[in-house]
């Protein structure tokens, strides 16, 4: 018999296959870290067995579909995540997050002396050197971005 730790949702988004330990960071990206904007339930599963491999985190957000900008940011911290859009208890859409070749305007450079952290009219920009694990390098100062989750904009 199948045991549900969290019940299925009617409408909303299930972010599945999040790297273990990243669920709370995903919540921050979708603006639910403090439940602030939430009008409906948000459920978080941490460290549950994954059918694919090992363990995973899962986030379920009811009555909300993510916008592409949020999905792009999730890719930076959870490159194996899948997004399931649920409509009337059915998976209406399902896709993997996609790590781009370049990341523009989504994270700030972790080098405090980088010119992009000054008052210049440019968006921080990174080349993706490795998709999994994510390794980003600043195109301006050439430094590797430390702590991607902590530097998301």
């Amino acid at each position: 018999m199948k045991e549900f730790k969290v019940t299925p949702i009617r409408n909303g988004t299930v972010i599945d296959h999040i790297e273990c330990g990243m669920a709370l960071k995903v919540l921050r990206i979708i603006g639910m870290a403090d439940g602030g904007k939430a009008q409906s339930p948000v459920s978080v599963l941490m460290h549950v067995p994954s059918k694919k491999e090992g363990w995973k985190d899962v986030v379920k957000v009811e009555d909300r579909e993510l916008d592409p900008r949020e999905v792009d940011k999730i890719a930076l911290i959870a490159p194996k995540a899948t997004i399931n859009i649920i409509r009337d208890f059915n998976v209406a859409e399902k896709y993997n997050v996609k790590m781009p070749e370049r990341v523009v305007g989504k994270a700030r450079c972790s080098n405090p002396n980088c010119i992009t952290n000054q008052n210049e009219p440019v968006e921080p920009e990174f080349v993706v050197e490795s998709k999994n694990p994510p390794v980003l390098r600043c195109v301006y100062c050439d430094r590797q971005l430390d702590d991607i989750a902590g530097n998301l904009l």
Binding site: N113, C114, I115, T116, E120, V122, V139, Y140, C141
Partner: peptide, 13 residues
Amino acid sequence: RHPREGAARLAAR
């Protein structure tokens, strides 16, 4: 020559 890293790349852009 500039004291901030990345200044020359920004200038080039």
